[in-house]
Design a protein around this nucleic acid. Sequence first.
DNA 1: CGAGCGCTTGAGCTGATTCAACAGACGTGG
DNA 2: CCACGTCTGTTGAATCAGCTCAAGCGCTCG
Lengths: 256, 256
Amino acid sequence: MIGEALCRHLSSIGELSDEDAGALLRVKGEVRRLDKGRDVLSAGDVPHFSVIVLKGFLCRHSWKRDGTRQIHSFYMATETPCLETLHIDYMDNSLGAVMPSTVGIVPHPELFRLMEQRSRVQALLWRESLVQAAVFREWLTRNSTLPAHSAMAHLFCEMFVRAEAAGLLVANSCDMPTTQEILGHALGLTAVHVNRTLQLLRQSGLVDLRNGRLYVHDFDQLAQIGEFDPHYLHLRHGRSSARRRTIDAPMYMALN
Amino acid sequence: MIGEALCRHLSSIGELSDEDAGALLRVKGEVRRLDKGRDVLSAGDVPHFSVIVLKGFLCRHSWKRDGTRQIHSFYMATETPCLETLHIDYMDNSLGAVMPSTVGIVPHPELFRLMEQRSRVQALLWRESLVQAAVFREWLTRNSTLPAHSAMAHLFCEMFVRAEAAGLLVANSCDMPTTQEILGHALGLTAVHVNRTLQLLRQSGLVDLRNGRLYVHDFDQLAQIGEFDPHYLHLRHGRSSARRRTIDAPMYMALN
DNA sequence: CGAGCGCTTGAGCTGATTCAACAGACGTGG
DNA sequence: CCACGTCTGTTGAATCAGCTCAAGCGCTCG
């Protein structure tokens, strides 16, 4: 299960030979369940393993002195939050579960062994860590320069595209089990303002976030509002923000 | 000169054997001069080289539709802005010179050859790229959660500590040739507000930025204001923000 | 000496925050 | 089965940090 997820994820950012895939599928690790709100890794930890999300929804975050926190990224199934632990000794931030989740714990020696044998896998793991750096840059830009409604649209676009890459899209929706407060921690906004901004976007009819699920009704326009360009995700088969295949009229529209 | 800078920089984040250092010193590359405002790499480029700063001051930045831009990081002499190009095909941002600068251009094949021969060097280059990711995360947190004066103090602390690590500190000052507008692009503030905030910090007596040079009068208090904790820089001999050796009464104080 | 660039200052505006109250959903224990 | 506390979402009103627009100043360089 761990190898399968790893394989799927690395395939989304680069090509794998059959031998590479085979080696990945044989990766050994422990499967661990996590309660909501529980950290897998906390700031200051010196971990000897990396993490892959098998089920659920995690986030990387750090607390500030005054009790506020910043979320640096969300992680859905198949994604690999902690590759940086391979070469960074201690955590300067934490990795926690947004909802009850299941993760794979892969010991560093196992990964180093694998990378020594399969240089292509090493290259892709490195690449993945670099893509995540690109995501941090994009979040920096988003939170620093965009007004609330654009920033939120941008985040929704990113999560949507990543869900697509992970094969987690159903019709035009994906899981996004974030409370408005958590959304605020990601966007650098208060929960109150997230609430009002979310209502604005809902009214626009482009997008909705309800019961922990994100519904994207018009990706192109949402990308327009959020100034979203998926290039920074460096996906192999990424959608261009401009050319997007149309989607079928969604069933939940009947609900309105 | 390129090898020397590379050696010095990697030494700041990890230990190098004599053989590693020797191999690094023999690295071949082109030395290139850059006019102020000129990009070495622009968004969309597909580079076949990495960059090391030999002299001057660069920044990584990206433009937004509306003409604003976000600076993701500054780079001073000995630092290596573009390691990610090793495994990321095209640039999703640009690297430009803040002042007239000199950079080393090291072709990818040269770096791959080196890394194949010296696995420790590979580990450190990977580590360096991960440290930069940690810096992006910190910038995200800073710009998203801190008020202007704290954010500015935080940035000053980072540049100061990095200058120290690069051996570029003279007494308690280092080069920081940023206009107030550029500072605004880094902090996500307007030039006007940067101006007012800078005056506040000046009045506090803790720090000054004048004629392209940053003077830090009281690092500990500045770190306090900026909630700065240097751990995220993952330096080998990093100062702790709490325990800082006292510095001599600075000469330029006579200037006031 | 004039042009341009960077810095400074003022005044009014606005997007986001704070504080406070309330409503609905959910789970737990009596 | 209901009562109650907790968590999440919603709304209103007052406040404020940072922005916009606009003008002016001083330095440097051609």
